[in-house]
């Protein structure tokens, strides 16, 4: 049974239509990659699922419960659906540790000590334990992004949305972040990620969707989509990616 179901989702900013009828299902423990050019609607789709954007029409179901429309407890929804942003968005006035423990202590009902212990454990796993007392400015982009992932994971989300999380990083910092996502995927976390890292998408994705102008033009397993794309647009897109040396 699909954990996340999206049916005929429409979204516009003013008169500009961004999403023109997206339907997508993500099963538990599945990793779905969204690929496509800039402006094709990948980020907007993720933000809609997290209710950071309101939608015009369509339905989003999380664990069988419709989360669109009025009266939905968004704070509960967002605890189940975590998101990590392209620009990390850590809180600059808080230490790494406080960034991670803020939500668990404030709304997760976990004691400060327990939350800090958990945060230290998570930081230890990614080798950033000694940075617990630092402020985000003192960290490299890759370290910040890994802390942002830990921050989202500290709420024990059912599904994690990743919005081009390596797009703002220097090339040599991308590897550490992707390694972390790879481990989460192996651990069975349900993920929906928008990415430009085609090689990575090919490796971890159980399903790849190609978005073009607000629609999912083509979808399939990584192998189907990368080896044998059916749509002309998909072929063109992948050809450009190859030309740019990114696949």
């Amino acid at each position: 049974m699909s954990y996340l179901q999206i049916r005929d989702l429409h979204k516009s900013y003013g008169s500009v239509q961004i999403l023109k009828g997206i339907s997508l299902e993500v099963a538990r423990h599945e990793v779905v990659c969204l690929i496509g050019a800039s402006g094709s609607g990948k980020s907007t789709l993720l933000r809609c699922i997290n209710a950071l954007e309101t939608i015009e029409s369509g339905e989003i179901l999380v664990d069988g419960d419709q989360v669109t429309g009025l009266g939905v407890n968004l704070n509960v929804l967002r605890r189940n659906v975590g998101i990590v942003f392209q620009s990390y968005n850590l809180f600059p006035h808080m230490t790494v540790l406080k960034n991670i423990t803020l939500a668990p202590t404030m709304i997760g009902g976990i004691s400060k000590d327990a939350a800090e212990q958990r945060a230290i454990e998570l930081l230890d796993k990614i080798g950033l334990r000694q940075k617990a007392g630092s402020y985000p400015d003192a960290l490299s982009g890759g370290q910040q992004q890994r802390v942002a992932i830990v921050r989202a994971m500290a709420m024990d989300p059912q599904v994690l949305l990743l919005d081009e999380i390596t797009a703002a990083l220097d090339p040599e910092l991308v590897g550490d972040v992707l390694e972390m996502i790879r481990e989460l995927a192996v651990g069975g976390l349900t993920m929906l990620l928008a990415t430009h890292e085609m090689g990575f998408a090919r490796e971890v994705a159980s399903q790849v969707c190609f978005l073009h102008q607000g629609k999912i033009l083509e979808r399939g397993t990584a192998e189907e989509l990368f080896e044998n794309p059916q749509e002309e647009r998909t072929q063109q897109f992948l050809k450009r990616v190859v030309t740019a040396g990114r696949l």
């Binding site: 933000r47 997290n50 950071l52 968004l74 704070n75 509960v76 967002r78 605890r79 975590g82 998101i83 942003f85 968005n89 850590l90 809180f91 803020l102 939500a103 404030m106 709304i107 997760g108 921050r151 989202a152 709420m155």
Partner: peptide, 10 residues
């Protein structure tokens, strides 16, 4: 910053 805070469930 709003998005980050709200997305954590605050």
């Amino acid at each position: 910053q709003w998005a980050a805070a709200r997305s954590l469930g605050l």
